[in-house]
Amino acid sequence: MALKATIFKVDLSISDMDKHYYADHALTIARHPSESDKRMMLRIIAFAFNAHEQLEFTKGLSDVDTPDLWQKNYSGEIELWIELGQPSEQRIKKGCNQAVQMMVYSYDNNAFDEWWKKEQNALNMRKNLTITTVSETTIEQLADLVERQMQIQVTIQDGQAWFSVNNQTIEVSLNKVKEV
């Protein structure tokens, strides 16, 4: 019998002073059996930094035709395509061709460094692609706080974020490896 996704309920309160975006999001996250707490928290980080009323999680690992998150406009056009990890060049090409903007969020570790060395020349040609890393230590700290029901308050100012989970605050810094 196949393993089923684990459901997480997250009340995410975002105060983004850089974008003047202030909203609460009641998120239901279906975590695929092969997905770790670290990867799930990276999805939440990507959501928080790109928060919009139309940004949503997709089936992610369960559906190879969709990204981890995307934002569509009212006519169904993909405005933002977000992938996690180190996607293949073909996957990035697909996202860049189908969306106005594409973003990749990854852990800042040796695997990313090797991937970036291999793919850098081809990816630098993509004009609508942004690649961002987050410290693996930061992700591990956030993953240690994961519960099935979470209340997370995020404050973003001057490109820095503070995630408050279970009365613990963790600073999250993004490293922009490639910007649009």
Rank of each mutant, 00 (worst) to 15 (best):
Y107E: 06
L80S: 02
A99M: 12
I92M: 07
G95Q: 07
A99S: 15
S106L: 01
Q101H: 14
I78R: 12
V104T: 06
D108T: 13
D108E: 15
V104A: 02
F112T: 08
Q98W: 05
E119A: 15
A111R: 11
Q98C: 07
E83C: 02
I92H: 01
L80I: 06
A111N: 10
Y107N: 02
E83H: 01
K94M: 13
D108F: 12
K118I: 01
E114S: 10
W116V: 09
D113F: 01
Q120G: 00
Q90E: 14
N109L: 05
N110K: 10
Q120I: 00
Q86Y: 01
E114W: 08
Y107L: 04
G95K: 05
W81R: 02
R91C: 01
S88P: 01
D108I: 12
V100P: 06
K94L: 15
V104P: 06
N110E: 14
A111H: 11
R91N: 03
N110M: 10
G95T: 07
F112M: 05
Q90R: 14
W115C: 03
K93I: 11
V104W: 01
G85F: 03
W116A: 09
S106T: 14
K118T: 05
L80T: 08
I78F: 08
A111M: 07
L80K: 08
V100Y: 14
M103K: 15
S106I: 05
W116S: 10
S88W: 00
N97Q: 12
V100Q: 15
K117V: 04
C96T: 15
Q98D: 06
Y105H: 06
E114C: 03
G95S: 06
N110I: 07
N110L: 12
C96R: 11
N109G: 04
K94F: 12
N110C: 05
E83S: 04
V100I: 15
Q86R: 05
E79G: 02
Q101I: 12
